[in-house]
Amino acid sequence: MMLIATDLDGTLLRADKTISARTTEALERAAAADVPVVLVTGRPIRWLRTVYAQLAIPLPAVCANGAVVYDPMRDQVLRADPLAPEALEEIARRLAEEVPEAVLAVEIMDGREMRHHIDYPMRWDSEHGGVQAVRAIAELLTEPAVKLLVRAGDRDPDEFADQIAKALAGVGEATHSSTSGLVEVSASGVTKAAGLAWYCARLGVPAAEVTAFGDMPNDVPMLAWAGHAVAVGNAHPAVKEIADEVVASNEDDGVATYLEQLLP
């Protein structure tokens, strides 16, 4: 059985966070052909409402870079693999040594709530609700978190992610999906590939039957795992380097164009 796995921001969604009518139609065509489609995103659950509002059928999602598998039809978390408080404490300790100026936030309650240090610069984060500011780093480390977020002013995103990855080796997975110097940290071994592999095993779909679409470094593990990897035209060089093929950009309906050819 074939399965389609697609990233959201920068891949399926346009820059204004909308899904084109053409893309919506292509996803409906896949459903009509009994081809499962799963959203695989760095977004937490609380950020999915605006996506589901644009879809005729709510699609299952692997959220928080693989830490959460979510069934929107039942509003049910099928699997969660968060950072334990002990791991969060160790990560905070290492970050304080490596990047003393770093400020942190965490996605808790399976990604339904965000808690951030008062100095953490809020950008689009607060648009989706469920946000609480705290004054002490220790208050961020008491509950399991499906994702920890790290900022330290304006940084080169690739270099900063590499720096954090080295500092957290063995205790967390560091990646990035933006150009703003934000690093996203998951539990050790938790990636989009791991979350998608769990979901596909549940359906009995082997990696060889999965076609995956992506655009940023947090998509690389998923694309490397999938049988066929597709980068959109606007993708990060690291994504294009491992992709089996490159299609049009997200603004030009690259995913839809591919699906139209795949499912005539």
Results as ranks from 00 to 15, higher is better:
Val210Thr: 10
Ala187Cys: 11
Ala167Met: 12
Glu209Pro: 08
Ser178Gln: 04
Gly204Val: 08
Ser180Asp: 14
Gly189Gln: 13
Ala167Tyr: 07
Leu182Arg: 00
Asp162Ala: 15
Gln163Glu: 15
Gly195Phe: 07
Val185Cys: 04
Ser188Leu: 14
Gln163Gly: 04
Glu184Trp: 00
Ala174Leu: 03
Gly181Val: 00
Pro206Leu: 05
Trp198Asp: 14
Gly204Pro: 11
Ala194Lys: 13
Trp198Gly: 04
Ser188Ala: 13
Glu209His: 15
Ser188Gly: 03
Val171Lys: 08
Ser186Tyr: 02
Lys192Ile: 00
Ala161His: 01
Val183Ile: 07
Leu196Tyr: 09
Ala197Val: 04
Trp198Tyr: 11
Leu203Ala: 10
Gly189Cys: 11
Gly172Trp: 04
Trp198Met: 10
His176Leu: 00
Gly170Leu: 06
Cys200Trp: 05
Ser188Val: 11
Ala201Gln: 14
Gly189Lys: 09
Glu173Thr: 15
Arg202Cys: 04
Val205Cys: 09
Trp198Ala: 08
Val210Trp: 03
Ala193Asn: 13
Ala212Ser: 11
Leu182Asn: 00
Pro206Lys: 05
Ala207Pro: 10
Thr179Asn: 13
Gly172Pro: 08
Ser186Lys: 05
Leu168Met: 09
Val210Met: 09
Thr211Val: 14
Asp162His: 11
Val190Gln: 07
Thr191Asn: 12
Glu173Leu: 02
Cys200Phe: 06
Ile164Trp: 13
Ala208Glu: 12
Thr179Trp: 13
Cys200Asp: 03
Ala207Ile: 08
Ala208Pro: 05
Val185Gln: 02
